[in-house]
């Protein structure tokens, strides 16, 4: 990959490997308890109901911006050329109590600073896309509804 400083998640943790395996297949999943049906994120080895029957459940990939921040310097070398960039907390449409951190971009391949902050507001609708960054790691990225119209 072009940026050797990039920060990547470990994909071999038994509790979370299923999330990253699904992301490689361009599917967004959260855990769902096989006994009580409760959805969970981030992944855990058990459900609060006591069950260990945790399975993966594909969600629609639609969500809303619950909140966001805008990072400025100083930061790590991998992100230094990208500041200022937005990072968002996305509330999932299928499970509004579950929130995922991710970047906004105009397309799966566009940079994480491609959506300027004045185009972002709490409540904005977004849809997931996937960006492969290494052979093992594909990161979800979120395309704002307003931006995808612009691109199309």
């Amino acid at each position: 990959m072009e940026n050797k400083d990039i920060v990547i998640p470990a994909t071999d943790d038994p509790d979370t490997a299923g999330f990253w395996a699904a992301a490689r297949e361009r599917r967004l999943v959260v855990q769902r308890c096989g006994d009580c049906g409760k959805m969970r994120f981030p992944p855990r080895p058990a459900c609060t109901c006591g069950s260990f029957a945790m399975g993966w459940h594909e969600v629609s990939g639609r969500g809303r911006v619950w909140s966001y921040g805008v990072a400025h310097a100083p930061t790590l070398p991998a992100f230094a050329d990208l500041v200022p960039y937005v990072f968002a907390v996305i509330e999932l449409a299928d499970a509004p109590h579950l929130r995922m951190v991710g970047n906004l971009a105009t397309s799966a391949k566009a940079a994480i600073n491609s959506v300027p902050q004045d185009a972002v507001a709490i409540g904005d609708e977004v849809t997931v896309a996937f960006r492969p960054v290494t052979d093992e790691v594909t990161l979800p990225v979120w395309i704002p509804a307003t931006q995808s119209e612009v691109v199309q």
């Binding site: 990547i8 790590l76 951190v101 991710g102």
Partner: peptide
């Protein structure tokens, strides 16, 4: 927990 934050540029 860092796996869900740091890759997206939430570093500090």
């Amino acid at each position: 927990y860092e796996a869900w934050l740091r890759p997206f540029g939430m570093i500090r």
